[in-house]
Design a protein around this nucleic acid. Sequence first.
DNA 1: TCGGTATAGTTCGAATTCGAACTAATCGAC
DNA 2: GTCGATTAGTTCGAATTCGAACTATACCGA
Lengths: 155, 155
Amino acid sequence: MTESQWLNQQEMAAWTAFLEASHLVERRVEQQLRDQAGLSHPQYEILVRLSDAPEGELRMTELAEKVVTSKSGLTYQIGRLEKAGLVHRRTCPSDERGVHAVLTDHGRRKLREAAPDHVNLVRSSLIDQLSAEQLTTLSEGLSTVAHKLRTGETG
Amino acid sequence: MTESQWLNQQEMAAWTAFLEASHLVERRVEQQLRDQAGLSHPQYEILVRLSDAPEGELRMTELAEKVVTSKSGLTYQIGRLEKAGLVHRRTCPSDERGVHAVLTDHGRRKLREAAPDHVNLVRSSLIDQLSAEQLTTLSEGLSTVAHKLRTGETG
DNA sequence: TCGGTATAGTTCGAATTCGAACTAATCGAC
DNA sequence: GTCGATTAGTTCGAATTCGAACTATACCGA
């Protein structure tokens, strides 16, 4: 194998760009959501996923997978959101072990309120920095990466 | 403006792919480094940045910017790495307030040891999932994104 | 139907992160 | 030179994350 044990210059540039961009975007988004909506980014992501789901509800495990967090991490965040009245828990009728996280009206309102500024930031920091073609390529490429990691088809 | 207050389907796909890929890759890399080298990813990144720097040393603030973390966060991690003998601190001769984080021989050895498996994972999970063209596009696009965020030319 | 195994979610403790407040040293205008 | 404003780094407390251990329920084969 010619692939050395170090990343070559081009690989390193790509990897560094990926890491830096994700950390910087994450930091900026987090800061903005906190300042303007009093939500952390993980919390906001939970609300988005719930609002996209039928009936505004999802099982804990499914939600944890969608937002890429541990189950205990989700338990914590749902606890906070519940305390804030944005979400509530309902025992799953068909499985006593299971719990549905359900978006409340207040949660939906909060999301509608917070969305515009958040969306503007996502656009200005990421989407508008890329050409339409770059955006498509990035979207396709990273979807593949995510899919492979989820299904374990990867190292 | 036609840009609504929500992301359209294509924008949402790109944003979601970006978030999921970065979280999943991050999680996988973290797990692998911990298992095989006893290092966290942030710690590993610090070692890489130091090993790339002349004399294997960098000022704390500069290093914090490179790895995209807060100064207090870096203080903590350098403390851990120092305890492990991988890095040590040296007061900057030209500025009594300043501190250099310096890679030790042990730190360099540790990095050389850990690198091959790490590099393989970065390749198999990210780089090899993309065509050469996709990789270039991603690298260029995300470099721009990172640069704009660093220089504050962005929302 | 019973018992063993697997699954859903929570609890717990340890590690890590951040920002605000702090200390110490440097810079700049006068 | 000297005082006020900046800058470098650390300390501190609060919030968040994870995984391991735990509880409770469901599933499945004999």
